[in-house]
């Protein structure tokens, strides 16, 4: 890993932290935090390996008790609690998003193809994988079945996550056009 990769990882982690500091946009009555778009953005912008490592760094910061999550949350209690699975899922989600984005999107494609590729990567990695880990952990911790855990922990958030995937896709496409990093080897 070059020093540049290390710096890109750290800067992206810092961006994720800042996304948690900016006030959430409310849609109806539901606050939409920009931070939850981070997984999709990390995978689509800096790629699988660096994106996943940026999230490893986020988790380490949570673990050592820095309030880096939206709403000033942090600490081991968040990781050990019933929703810790979603946080672990971020690392794998960013990796899967990155793998798909690296394979599906190239700089020579038309804008439409790039958007389709990023959207698919964001939905599978940023929503599918994250909720898979989250629900499995939730069901295990509360000794309930997967259906209940899904209905309580994931289902209410999925429509908003789809909206976030669209926003993240357009942002990732804009970054790819302005300052491409995705295919520079990590």
């Amino acid at each position: 890993m070059t020093t540049r990769d290390l710096v890109l990882i750290a800067l992206f982690t810092a961006i994720i932290v800042v996304l948690g500091l900016i006030p959430p946009v409310t849609l109806g009555a539901v606050p939409i935090t920009a931070q939850s778009m981070g997984v999709m953005l990390a995978g689509c912008i800096i790629g699988a390996k660096r994106g996943a490592l940026a999230y490893v760094l986020v988790i380490l910061m949570v673990a050592i008790g820095l309030p880096v999550l939206s709403g000033g949350r942090g600490g081991l209690a968040i990781l050990a609690g019933p929703t810790g699975g979603y946080i672990i899922g971020w690392v794998v989600g960013a990796y899967v998003t990155g793998i798909l984005a690296e394979r599906l999107v190239s700089e020579r494609q038309t804008g439409g193809r790039q958007i389709a590729g990023f959207l698919l990567a964001s939905v599978i990695g940023g929503i599918g994988i994250v909720h898979l880990f989250g629900v499995a952990w939730l069901a295990f911790h509360t000794k309930s079945n997967l259906g209940v855990a899904f209905m309580v922990g994931s289902a209410p958030f999925i429509p908003f996550d789809l909206l976030k995937a669209c926003i993240a896709t357009l942002a990732a496409r804009a970054v790819l056009a302005g300052y491409p990093l995705l295919h520079a080897r990590a």
Binding site: V18, L41, A171, A174
Partner: peptide
């Protein structure tokens, strides 16, 4: 809006990496 903030924020930040 998040959409118009994210791209400039990310580009502005990451271009300092080098």
């Amino acid at each position: 809006r998040p959409l118009t903030i994210l791209a400039p924020l990310i580009i502005l930040t990451l271009k300092d990496a080098d």
